[in-house]
């Protein structure tokens, strides 16, 4: 027992804990169809209404599919982290997990994996809708590249969700997330193309993470606004650092309390 303890406490990753934590996070979600279905249907429905039906014959098929894909992956990142961390914190589950030998990273990795799985399902649903109902043409290689950028780009929003989940109580978290999510998606041009927005609003987009995220995604297909991709990448990294710092400050506040 003692030697096993020592072996185990050597720096290293407890893969079993990581895997089980993710597995149980999956089970938790899968057993809540009233959470899963709306989360998936919402971006599909939005895209079908505004990106497909409303835009019949308007062109921009690739552009709109990409914007709704960005919108789609941001949702589970914000909600998956924000609401569930907030609920876990309020129910004392986070305290229990901090008190036992669970690697803290396992807790967060499980939620990241959950968000990414949701993101994957959402963007593939959007792809199917786009391929069947619009004149989108995209190569396999382009899609793989786009999907990769979409999923990696969801991570800063996981960080934002985490910050919200740590600072805001469980009852308020969904409202706060919507207040951040929906206006910033609109102002970043995820619903209506950014170039159709008034000039003044286009300026505002620069301070919004979804704008930079979407520009990176358009960049994959060569349909961005044309600013250097490094600017958008740097902006997203800076936002991520800011959100993580906020989350860390909140986390410390919890442990000092």
């Amino acid at each position: 027992m003692n030697s096993a303890t020592q072996q185990h406490s050597k720096p290293g990753i407890n893969w079993r804990a990581q895997a089980y934590e993710a597995l149980n996070e999956l089970r938790r979600s899968a057993r809540m169809p009233m959470f899963v279905l709306p989360s998936l249907l919402f971006p599909w429905m939005f895209y079908t209404f505004f990106g497909v039906l409303f835009n019949k014959g308007g062109g921009h098929a690739a552009y709109l599919m990409v914007s709704y894909a960005c919108f789609g992956v941001i949702g589970p990142a914000l909600f998956g982290f924000g609401v569930s961390v907030s609920v876990d914190r309020q129910q004392g589950l986070l305290s229990l997990k901090r008190a036992v030998a669970m690697p803290v990273s396992a807790y967060f990795n499980a939620k990241i994996i959950m968000s990414l799985i949701f993101g994957l399902i959402i963007i593939h649903g959007l792809l199917v809708i786009a391929l069947t109902m619009t004149d989108l043409s995209i190569s396999f290689g382009q899609w793989i590249a786009l999907a990769t950028v979409l999923l990696l780009g969801a991570l800063p929003f996981c960080a934002l969700g985490l910050a919200i989940g740590i600072w805001v109580n469980a009852q308020a978290a969904p409202a706060v997330i919507n207040l951040v999510y929906l206006p910033s998606a609109f102002l970043s041009g995820l619903w209506i193309p950014i170039f159709l927005l008034p000039q003044s609003l286009q300026q505002v987009a620069w301070i919004l993470p979804p704008y930079h995220f979407s520009q990176l995604c358009y960049g994959v297909l060569g349909i961005s606004q044309g600013y250097p991709m490094t600017i958008h990448l740097f902006a997203l990294l800076a936002f991520t650092v800011l959100f993580l710092a906020l989350a860390k400050k909140g986390y410390q506040r919890i442990s000092d309390r």
């Binding site: 303890t5 185990h8 149980n24 938790r28 809540m32 129910q91 004392g92 008190a99 036992v100």
Partner: peptide, 17 residues
């Protein structure tokens, strides 16, 4: 942590596991 166990006063576990 590896050598102790805990029952906290207020800790609700995942309801649907």
């Amino acid at each position: 942590k590896l050598r102790l166990g805990v029952v906290l006063q207020h800790a609700e576990l995942a309801e649907n596991l």
